[in-house]
Computed example of a mutant assay.
Amino acid sequence: MTYSQSDYENAHLSELPANVRGEIFRQIRTEKGYSLEDLAETCGLTASEILGVEAGDIANPSYVTRIAHALGLVAP
């Protein structure tokens, strides 16, 4: 399924299943041309932590907020 930035903006992070939230992050990251390493450097996480969030395996609220901000999204 394809998600857009508006899908993210119209939902609270806590209301999204971790795998959906992760897929939205992955799509926005790739649309912006960021590699995992680029995003990791920007938000202060490791590439494997970001990969875990994108896969829905990691739901740490701090990680989610840092990734959202690094992607230019406002974490509700």
Rank of each mutant, 00 (worst) to 15 (best):
L71A: 06
I24R: 07
K32A: 14
A70V: 00
N19Q: 10
Y63I: 02
E49N: 05
R26K: 15
V53F: 09
E41L: 13
Y63R: 05
M1V: 15
A11S: 05
Q5A: 13
A59S: 15
P61Y: 10
R21P: 02
C43I: 05
E37Q: 15
E9W: 01
V53T: 06
D7I: 00
S6K: 11
E9R: 09
L16Y: 04
E54A: 11
L39W: 00
A55C: 11
I67Q: 08
H12Y: 10
A47G: 04
L16H: 03
P61R: 01
I58F: 04
N60P: 02
Y34G: 05
D7P: 01
A40E: 00
N10V: 00
R21K: 12
L13N: 05
P17N: 10
E41A: 14
P17H: 06
C43W: 09
Q27A: 11
Q27K: 08
V53I: 15
T2G: 09
A18M: 09
V53S: 11
D7T: 05
E23I: 07
V53A: 15
A75P: 09
L36P: 02
L45F: 01
H69P: 03
A59R: 13
M1T: 13
S35C: 08
K32P: 07
P76S: 14
I58E: 15
L71W: 07
A75G: 07
V74F: 10
S48I: 06
N60G: 13
S4G: 04
S14P: 03
E41M: 08
E49T: 02
